[in-house]
Design a protein around this nucleic acid. Structure first.
Lengths: 107, 107
DNA sequence: ACGCTCTATGAGTACTTACTCATACAGTCA
DNA sequence: TGACTGTATGAGTAAGTACTCATAGAGCGT
């Protein structure tokens, strides 16, 4: 079964999964340590059901992986490159803001 | 005026701007050459007005820059790192697909 | 001035998304 | 078994997004 998705579609699926601010925060936490839903919820001040759905989106995109451990479901980053994407996004955002500030000054 | 946006929010603004499949396609084209709306529209098979709005989103995020040249408005990548983000997204997507295939085989 | 080309935007619609509440499901321990 | 903890999901709602059509604006040429 070969995927018929275009390259642009493949990329956007990963990026859409990552792009939500709460999911960015989840990834930032998981970049440091393995955590479960019950630890992330208070750390991010998110409703348990809401967080569960965000985590599901990340798992389905293949950005994080999960496994059961007793009652808990643990999560960790599946591919370290997603953290690199976050770093680059940060850098682009920073430059964008600086450029806008520069335009205002010289104007 | 200092921005009060959280790091997660800054990142997600860039990623949300990039994440749409049509905007990924726009960036892929602009990664190779400078183009105007009128050249991109037929290349991407997008409605002129629809394309114009996608380009606006990318400009507002600071991902691309635009300048007038007669009737045309040209666009180019503002920060080459967005292309790197697309490459990484592609790599993550590829690995995700392979991992899922592996799971199916060993199952 | 006029017509022509290219781009931007208002308005309307269909679709998707995030969120919350309530509830079901899964696993542990007494 | 029942009570308890942790997770997933159905249902409903509010908000956001992408798309199209029509139209306005901006700049070129005659």
């Amino acid at each position: 079964m070969i995927s018929h998705k275009t390259p642009a579609h493949l990329k956007s699926e990963i990026l859409e999964a990552i792009a939500h601010p709460n999911r960015v925060r989840i990834l930032e936490h998981l970049g440091k340590e393995i955590l479960c839903n019950c630890e992330l919820a208070p750390a991010l001040s998110l409703e348990q059901s809401n967080l569960s759905r965000h985590l599901k989106i990340l798992v389905q995109a293949g950005v994080i992986v999960s496994w059961k451990e007793g009652l808990r479901v643990n999560f960790k980053i599946a591919d370290e490159r997603v953290l690199k994407i976050l770093d680059l996004a940060q850098a682009v955002a920073k430059r964008s803001i600086e450029t806008k500030a520069g335009v205002l000054e010289e104007g």
